[in-house]
Amino acid sequence: MYRDNKRFTSERGNVLATLLKGGDSAAGKMLAVTDGRRHRELRNLLLKAFAPRVPEPVVEGVKRRADQLVREGVARGDCDFAQDIAERIPMATIADLLGVPEADREYLLSLTKEALSAEDAGQSADDALVARPAGSP
């Protein structure tokens, strides 16, 4: 399956709810929803950020962030691990690598969640479309 991207492709999307409705408007534009040559091209652009000298500060940032988020949850006396901690670490790490300002990170996380899945009962399909890359149907 890994090597057969003709029959097992990500290019129509990779989120079940989206696939059931006929495809992903971001397919072919984001690394996670590309295959073959396009996937290699996008991946090669990102490789510089993950060169051998880069991971050490990234790992330290993940450890520091995880510790901070757990401490905040304990201090509140209430914590949904998936929402309050686990979903924030990957996005914050990517934001660190890309130099995204702190003030924009919550908005970036909300756009990512809207683009990939509808988890709020009141979220419309239009909300997900707005969060997708420009030019996506």
Rank of each mutant, 00 (worst) to 15 (best):
M1I: 14
N5C: 09
R7G: 02
R7A: 05
R7N: 08
T9M: 04
T9Y: 02
T9L: 02
S10L: 12
V15S: 03
T18V: 14
T18G: 08
K21F: 00
G23A: 02
G23W: 06
D24V: 09
S25V: 11
L31F: 05
V33S: 10
R37T: 14
R37L: 15
R38D: 14
H39Q: 10
R40Q: 15
R40C: 13
R43H: 06
R43Q: 03
L45S: 00
L45D: 00
L45G: 01
L46F: 07
L46S: 07
L47S: 14
K48E: 04
K48A: 08
K48N: 07
R53K: 01
P55F: 15
E56Q: 06
V59A: 15
G61M: 11
R64E: 13
A66L: 12
A66D: 03
D67G: 01
Q68R: 05
L69T: 07
V70E: 00
R71H: 13
R71S: 12
R71T: 04
A75L: 11
A75R: 09
G77L: 00
G77Q: 00
D78H: 15
D78G: 12
C79I: 12
F81T: 04
D84P: 10
D84W: 04
E87R: 01
R88F: 08
I89P: 06
P90Y: 00
M91L: 11
A92S: 14
A92T: 10
A92K: 02
T93L: 10
I94F: 03
L97W: 03
V100C: 08
A103M: 09
S110R: 10
E114N: 11
A115S: 10
S117K: 10
A118D: 06
A121N: 03
A121E: 08
G122S: 09
S124P: 09
S124R: 15
D127V: 03
A128E: 04
L129K: 14
L129Y: 07
L129P: 09
V130L: 12
A131G: 11
A131S: 13
R132A: 00
A134F: 12
G135L: 13
